[in-house]
Each structure stands twice: as C-alpha cells, then as structure tokens.
Simulated scan of single mutants.
Amino acid sequence: MKLYTTLMAATAATLLPLSASAHFQLIYTPEAVVESTGELPVKLIFWHPLDNGHVMDMATPREFYMVHNGERTDLLDTLSAVDFQGAENSGAAFRGSVPIRRSGDYVLVTVPEPYHEESEDIYIQQITRVFLNRNGLPTDWPDVMGLPAEIQPLNRPYNVLAGSTFTGRVLSEGEPVAGAEIEIEYMASEPDMDSAATTEPTVTPPAGGTLVALSDANGYFTFGIPRAGWWGFAALGVGPETEHDGKELSQDAVIWIHATELE
C-alpha cells in the first residue's frame, strides 16, 4: 500500500503539459481481447492519434514479431505497404496479420526504422509493444523482454477498467530508468481496418497539452485511466542508442493498453 501511494503521488506531482498531441507508433487492431482463431489483421502506423494529426511515413520495420507462450514468431513477411489517410495528410503505413491459434497472450513487437523529424532535425525510433489475449488465459504479458527500450506493464494491459489505474516500469536493456519522461496519449481517432480512412476524434485534446509523467527512482509510474479505449505511453529517449546517421536519436519505449467499461 505504501508503494502504491508513493507511485500515485509521484506521478500526480509530475504530470506536465506539452504540445497538443505526440508522435506515436501504432500496432493497431480494434480489440485487445480476441474471440476466435484465425489470421487477425493489424495496422502499423506512425501518427498523432489523439487529434487525427500529421501522419509520418513509415519505412519497412527492422522487426515485427509476436511472442506467445514464450515462443517468438517472425511476422515481417505478413506486412504489405498501404497508405493511411489522416485529416492533414496521407502517409506510408503497413498492414499485417497475426496467427491466433491457441488461448493465451500474444505480445506484438515492432522495431521501426528511425524516422527523421525535420522540425527538430533528430531521429525518432519507437520500439512498440501491444498485448492481445484469447480466452482470458494469461501467459506472457508481465515478462521483461530485454529490449533496448521497453515499458513493463504491472497490470494486464488488455484487462484495464476505465476509472482504475495502470502502472508501468520503464526499462533500458532490462534496467530501470529513473526520471524518464513518459508521454501519454488517448487514441481518439481509430483506423478503419478495411480502408485508408480513420474515424473522427471522439474527444478534444486537453487544454494543457500532451500529458506527461516522470518515472520514480525505480522506473515506476502510475496513471489513472479516465476513459475506455486505447491508451499509449511513450518513454522518450530511454534506449541506449543516441545517434543515427550523425544526428541525435531518441530511442523510445512505447506500450499500448486497452481499457473497457465495467458494465
């Protein structure tokens, strides 16, 4: 109880406003809890999903794979290039598929090529994870994968209730990162799986700008989830690589969680 109270106090004290929305790498499928077996379609998009903002062009990812029952399956060969249309522009994205065969967790991982952000003249690489589940059997969700940058969930990331909290731990090569800056974004616009389009945003951006939390001395942060849907957390620049093609690289850890209403 003491640890929980400390985490809540630390995070509440360090929520900071930035710009209206943030860059977020997506591995998107509409639902995190999968009902049936088969090939589950997913989309990989680099975008501003809170306000249906600018779409960044993706190159073919360096890695795209899943982990199920501790076994890794490469999914790069399922990817095909597609266009994605946001409100401001269209950009290069990818469509892939995930083979759902048995019960348990399916942890999807994307390691993209670094993206050159011209406005800042830096590169951004967001190593991203999303968690799916079939039949409520937990298998892989809490495992640390030893990625260069990752956020370890301390709540089942596909089983979060709106109005509850989510706690994560920021890691760099498996070690906790103190004072990491974590941008938090709600996916207010959701991609259409059958076209290049997306929905209109269901909320307006918060008046203070992008939500930001700082991890505590042991890498932990906690955030209260106010609304059902997909929530993204991006720990900025926590990976060990800091340069790409002679320019600054922000190697970020991204995790997406899915919240539902208790009915």
Rank of each mutant, 00 (worst) to 15 (best):
A259I: 05
T110Q: 08
I257N: 03
M187L: 15
S195V: 07
V98N: 02
P99F: 09
E88G: 09
T204F: 12
Q126L: 04
R95D: 12
S172Y: 03
V212L: 03
T14H: 02
V107L: 00
K2P: 03
S103K: 14
K43T: 09
T6G: 02
Q251E: 15
G86E: 02
T29D: 04
D143K: 15
G70C: 08
D194M: 12
P17E: 01
E150C: 06
W47K: 06
F131R: 02
E35S: 15
R134D: 08
S97N: 12
A188I: 00
E39V: 14
V203W: 00
A93Y: 01
I182Q: 05
N69L: 09
T110G: 06
F131Y: 15
V107P: 00
D140M: 06
L161Y: 13
Y220C: 08
W256T: 14
G174S: 07
F46L: 13
T128N: 12
S189Q: 04
L79E: 04
K247C: 06
A217Q: 14
V42R: 07
V109F: 08
M187G: 13
G86Y: 04
R95F: 10
W231F: 01
P148Q: 01
P176Y: 01
V130F: 05
F64G: 00
L211E: 12
D216H: 09
A178T: 07
L154M: 09
M187T: 13
Q251T: 10
N218D: 14
M1V: 14
Q125H: 08
E248F: 12
Y65K: 08
V170Q: 08
T5R: 15
P206F: 12
G70V: 10
S250T: 13
I27R: 05
A234V: 15
M145V: 07
G224N: 13
A234G: 11
F221D: 02
E185Y: 09
L262G: 15
E118D: 12
V144M: 11
I122V: 15
T60P: 10
Y220K: 05
D57G: 07
N89H: 01
S172E: 05
V254P: 08
V82E: 10
M145Y: 12
I27K: 00
P153L: 05
T37R: 05
R129E: 10
R134N: 04
G163R: 07
E35M: 13
P61R: 01
V203Q: 11
P114E: 04
I27S: 02
A234L: 13
P148I: 11
D51I: 14
L79M: 07
